[in-house]
């Protein structure tokens, strides 16, 4: 079982994940239309690039925009959650050891194990607060669907199962295999669900950045003050 989920299944997962992202990228760019979107993308490329980069960068910086500053508490949750979600698996000692032992033959530098553990807990706690917020606040509750909660579960499951396996709570093999499966589910879900914002965040931000950078004032001002 372990051989299967960490071998062919893992390989297929990564393939689907990467190809899925490429497909999302191509689909998005091909679907842009200067006249329908009312943005002269190619004619004013310099302003477009400037607008796109500003739009992405400002929103990647914690408290870098009016929006992030307005909802300061939620912003903290969002950044902790996403930082842990992206950094922990990529720089985890265990994951990189597996890479070194595999046909790839090398791994990335690893985080100290205690830090990785803390990040894992942070992701789970942040997710819990995000869930509570969803249910407690009327303007968020009205938007919330079962799908939103399912996605949160998909995103957190690899962390929870990984945590259980790492600390050997209960049956190690059970949690390990479940952990791998959950990780694979998440990776496959990325291109096919709302988790596609993994890449579409950048596309969408770039687009609105170009919109404001080219058409809505970017050529007559210093750029939109996100």
């Amino acid at each position: 079982m372990y051989e299967f989920v960490s071998g062919p299944l893992a390989l297929s997962t990564f393939l689907i994940f990467f190809l899925g992202l490429v497909w999302r990228f191509i689909w998005y760019v091909k679907g842009l239309n200067w006249q329908a979107d009312r943005v002269a993308y190619t004619q004013n490329a310099r302003y477009g690039v400037r607008g796109a980069l500003r739009s992405i960068l400002c929103w990647l910086i914690p408290y870098g925009t009016h929006g992030w500053r307005y909802y300061s508490g939620f912003t903290a949750l969002v950044f902790i959650f996403h930082f842990g979600l992206l950094i922990t698996p990529v720089f985890l000692l265990g994951h990189n050891e597996l890479l070194k032992q595999s046909w790839i033959g090398f791994g990335l530098p690893a985080l100290p194990e205690a830090l990785a553990d803390a990040l894992t807990i942070a992701v789970m706690v942040a997710a819990l607060f995000i869930l509570v917020r969803r249910i407690a606040l009327p303007p968020v509750r009205i938007l919330t669907t079962a799908y939103d909660i399912l996605l949160l579960v998909i995103a957190v499951a690899p962390f929870f199962t990984g945590f259980m396996a790492y600390h050997q709570i209960g049956n190690y093999n059970f949690w390990l295999i479940l952990h791998i499966l959950c990780g694979e589910i998440m990776l496959i879900a990325i291109p096919f669900t709302k988790l596609s914002h993994f890449i579409l965040f950048f596309m969408s931000r770039a687009q609105i950045g170009m919109d404001f950078g080219i058409k809505r004032g970017g050529m007559k001002s210093k750029g939109f003050p996100w």
């Binding site: 929006g67 969002v78 968020v140 669907t145 579409l200």
Partner: peptide, 11 residues
């Protein structure tokens, strides 16, 4: 994309 990826965050 706008319709699809809206995270329903309420911001």
């Amino acid at each position: 994309t706008w319709l699809e990826i809206c995270a329903h965050c309420g911001m």
